[in-house]
């Protein structure tokens, strides 16, 4: 399924609903972890031309931090939690139980990466748990991988994954907003079903 012509509004609604339930569970998990209110936007499910995937999320040179997990057994899918780099540091510090400001740069980065990797794991794991409950699929996740770099470079992964078979990528995107902090703090959860695995999901949901 590499173009949107085969998908009806019903299919898109079903995919969006998966995003809604998944991110809802993710928001709850993050809220419990941080002890703060976490709001979410209405999910958007859409086909994006592979050449525009990065531009879809911002300027290609925006410095972001991304946590990626995959599930590859009954259903193959990547999930990315992405947050601007400067906000990633604030988010990480919320669960680091000590003051790391006096440590050297390298150590601080390592501790923050570890915190973010855990936060990403909890958020994305909660998303997959919800999906598992809807579908009855067992969805084990890989160890989270963290990248901190330019948005464009990170989104190459998505573009190349879909580029092999077609010209557009299917993405489900939702933003999470953490409340009660001085700065607006939020990240984006992106669900990227592997090319070809969308049929399996739609069929399981009973709409195909």
């Amino acid at each position: 399924m590499d173009n949107n012509s085969k998908l009806t509004n019903l299919h898109m609604d079903a995919i969006r609903e998966v995003g809604n339930i998944g991110t809802g569970n993710a928001a709850t998990a993050l809220s419990r972890l941080l002890g703060r209110t976490v709001d979410m936007d209405v999910p958007v499910a859409e086909f994006v031309p592979i050449y525009d995937v990065a531009a879809h999320y911002g300027s290609p040179e925006t410095y972001v931090c991304a946590v990626l997990v995959r599930t590859e057994e009954e259903f193959s899918c990547s999930l990315i939690f992405m947050i601007e780099e400067e906000k990633a540091a604030i988010l990480a510090d919320l669960i680091i139980p000590m003051d790391i400001s006096g440590m050297d740069e390298e150590t601080r980065l390592q501790i923050r990466d570890s915190a973010l990797s855990e936060q990403g794991n909890i958020i994305l794991g909660a998303f997959l748990n919800a999906l598992s409950q809807i579908t009855g699929w067992v969805l084990p996740t890989t160890t989270p991988a963290v990248a901190r770099d330019m948005l464009g470079s990170i989104m190459d992964l998505v573009a190349s994954m879909f580029g092999v078979i077609g010209e557009s990528a299917m993405l489900v995107k939702t933003s999470l907003h953490i409340k009660g902090l001085d700065d607006e703090l939020g990240g984006t959860v992106i669900m990227i079903p592997d090319p070809g695995s969308l049929e399996a999901l739609l069929s399981k949901l009973g709409v195909l």
Partner: peptide, 23 residues
């Protein structure tokens, strides 16, 4: 030069690609 774009030019030209990852 965006993804999958190809540009050729005579002098003077500055060709730029931002945010290459696996590309």
């Amino acid at each position: 030069v965006g993804m999958a774009d190809l540009v050729v030019s005579k002098h003077p030209a500055t060709l730029v690609t931002l945010g290459l990852g696996s590309c």
